[in-house]
Amino acid sequence: MDEYKVRSKITLKHLKTKVVIDNAKQQLKVIRKQLGDLQNTMYAHNKYAVLVCLQGMDTAGKDSLVREVFKDFNVRGVNVHSFKVPTELELSHDYLWRHYIALPERGKFGIFNRTHYENVLVTRVHPEYILDENIPSVNSVDDINEVFWDKRFEQINNFERHLAENGTLIFKFFLNLSKSEQKNRLLRRLNKQEKNWKFSPGDLKERKLWDNYQTCYEDAINRTSRPYAPWYTIPADDKPTARYLVAKILFDTLIQYTDIKEPELDDNIKANIALYKEHLQNE
């Protein structure tokens, strides 16, 4: 799965958006059960948190991926956060605040469905949104220059480095969808009545900015894929394959942490297990 890990500069238009793995659905069932078992061990171990970041264009399959990949997790061990337009409260803090307070605690998985990268993606395509943050040094869109973005990328890298150095294992997945497949999925939302609610006219407006978004994604990935917080570019046109790839990357990486194991019982408790059993049986 190393082929999907971003280790050097990428060009998105040169990367595959469609890969089809035979029996991906069946393979996912096996790997997600193994992931669920591993998560239970991590919960007991209580030393590492796992942060899974999902980014992609509209219809890339983020919601269904979360549903299918983490289906066998104990609900107490996983939290999902979907970051939408910032609220008034969130805008009264710095842009990373709402992400920081949603971070997973040790022993748990946190899934960011759309992430802190929205602050260098959507806001870069629509810089006027930055004005809502009420930053002292930004009084107009003219103040949002390359120096501004350089600082923001540096802040994000520092944020992730801090998390990694304190026990959070970070995985960042870009679901690389083709423009033609997005068209098919938007049409499906319109053609199926039960899917109509997912469609918004705004989807079409954002689609017209496809090239802008691709440029911003490419730049963000290249600037922020680090050994402590790597990006993975996942071909997303085939949903079963994309889900399996994400699950496989998570599992294959996490099992390399050989220190993750269930804690040993206290010697006194271990020595008296038979006594505890006898006590319960004789109630």
Rank of each mutant, 00 (worst) to 15 (best):
G77S: 11
F153S: 03
R114Y: 09
G110W: 11
F174H: 14
L103M: 15
D143H: 04
D132Q: 06
D142I: 07
V69E: 11
E128P: 00
L103Y: 04
L103P: 03
E128Q: 13
S137F: 05
L65S: 14
E154H: 06
F70H: 01
D132E: 10
I144C: 04
H99F: 15
L96Q: 10
K179V: 02
T123K: 06
P136N: 01
I135D: 03
H116I: 13
N158S: 12
H116G: 02
L177H: 05
L91K: 15
L89E: 15
K84N: 13
F153Q: 03
E88Q: 13
D94R: 05
E133G: 03
L177I: 15
I111Q: 06
H116Y: 15
T168S: 06
V66C: 09
H162D: 08
V85T: 15
F70R: 03
F153R: 02
F159E: 02
F153N: 06
L175H: 08
H93Q: 14
P104G: 09
S140Q: 03
F174M: 12
L96R: 05
S82F: 04
R67Y: 11
F171C: 09
E118I: 05
V141L: 00
P136K: 02
R106W: 02
W97I: 07
V125P: 04
F112W: 12
I170Y: 08
G61K: 08
E154G: 05
Y129M: 15
W149I: 05
Y117V: 04
E133S: 05
V120Y: 01
S180D: 15
A102W: 09
R124C: 03
G61E: 01
Q155T: 12
R161Q: 14
F73G: 00
Y100R: 15
K62T: 13
K179W: 01
I111P: 03
N139Q: 09
R114Q: 10
V66P: 11
T168K: 00
W149G: 06
V78E: 06
D132G: 01
D142Q: 08
I135C: 00
Y95V: 08
I130H: 02
D143S: 02
R152N: 00
T87R: 11
L65D: 08
F83W: 07
F171S: 07
R67P: 00
D94A: 04
N157I: 12
R98T: 13
S140I: 07
F73N: 00
G61Y: 09
W149D: 09
K108Q: 14
V75S: 15
L177Q: 04
S64G: 15
Y117D: 11
P86T: 01
I170Q: 05
L163P: 01
F171V: 10
R152M: 03
E160G: 10
N119R: 14
L91D: 08
L175E: 06
R124V: 01
I144K: 00
F109V: 07
T87N: 10
E128C: 03
L177E: 01
E160D: 11
N157T: 12
E146Q: 14
N176G: 06
L169A: 04
D63R: 11
T87V: 10
